[in-house]
């Protein structure tokens, strides 16, 4: 017993989460996961390059090339690809463990459920964010934009933030519901992130996609028409770092609730499963 890391709680979490991450990362190199990652990279990359090749870099009159291609890249990568990637990897965080009958082993360890949740979340973030960074890195040199370096830095930051936020959000959904979790997460993604994120004023303030768009507009200096800006429909006209803070607060809240909930009720969930 003397060799054991004494104590529980935060200290136990700090020692065990890296081990869970290491374990989950090592076992995540499956053919399915590799194909998924390649698909996440290839689909937006091919779409972007096809558009560039077919239009010859031309954009509709009155539009700026940088704006059009940055928005396309943003929509395809941090928004859709990252959201779908986290939906596939983070939402089944508990249900996949129950399915493989491995959850019971986390259940009978002091703090085990929280460590498994955090470790699996970090692995999902790594896989998804790395795909986003790869797409951005491979596509931006071919896009007709004015400041590619600035766009790359913005996109990398957005991919990481989107992965953290969507991972925490879908992880929370996965903790709250183990049955049909993918369907619930998908419906949430379409209705809330896809539709409500465009509804101005109060509703879109707590929605990840609105915050990500706001960062893009601020860091790329894109101008929003006054009426839309006043309505705060597309983006919020405040500092980009303020928006980053918003997203990090959302991540903390989603993860905090998920950790609290998983530690509180997972036993019953397992027995029901």
């Amino acid at each position: 017993m003397a060799e054991r890391a004494v104590g529980g709680g935060l200290r136990r979490l700090i020692t065990s989460v890296p081990e869970v991450f290491r374990y989950e990362f090592a076992r995540s190199f499956t053919p399915w996961r590799t194909v998924l990652w390649l698909g996440m990279v290839a689909v937006p990359l091919v779409l972007l390059l096809t558009v560039v090749l077919m239009t010859g870099g031309r954009v509709p009159s009155g539009a700026e090339s940088s704006f059009v291609y940055a928005m396309m890249l943003y929509f395809l990568v941090p928004q859709v690809m990252t959201m779908l990637g986290m939906l596939l990897l983070a939402a089944p965080v508990v249900s996949s463990e129950i399915e493989s009958q491995a959850w019971v082993y986390a259940l009978v360890r002091c703090g085990g459920r929280r460590s498994v949740l955090l470790g699996k979340y970090l692995v999902a973030v790594l896989w998804t964010a790395s795909a986003g960074v790869a797409v951005s890195t491979m596509s931006i040199p071919f896009l007709p934009v004015e400041n590619p370096w600035r766009l790359w830095v913005t996109m990398v930051a957005l991919c990481v933030l989107a992965s953290l936020a969507y991972g925490a959000l879908f992880g929370l959904i996965g903790v709250l519901r183990q049955k049909r979790v993918m369907v619930i997460a998908f419906v949430y993604a379409i209705l809330v992130e896809g539709l409500l994120g465009w509804i101005p004023a109060v509703i879109n303030q707590g929605i990840v996609s609105f915050r990500l768009r706001s960062i893009l507009f601020r860091w790329m200096d894109f101008q929003v028409e006054k009426s839309l800006r006043d309505a705060r429909m597309i983006a919020e006209d405040t500092s980009g770092w303020g928006q980053v803070g918003w997203i990090l607060v959302m991540v903390a809240v989603f993860l905090g609730v998920a950790l609290w909930w998983v530690g509180r009720t997972a036993g019953e969930s397992v027995s029901e499963a």
């Binding site: 890391a5 020692t15 493989s100 082993y105």
Partner: peptide, 20 residues
């Protein structure tokens, strides 16, 4: 039913969850 891991890897994980 765990897939893709050895007994050594799995036991290492279980021990770390137990606080070792």
């Amino acid at each position: 039913l765990v897939h893709g891991v050895s007994a050594r890897q799995w036991l290492r994980l279980q021990l770390s969850l137990a606080g070792w």
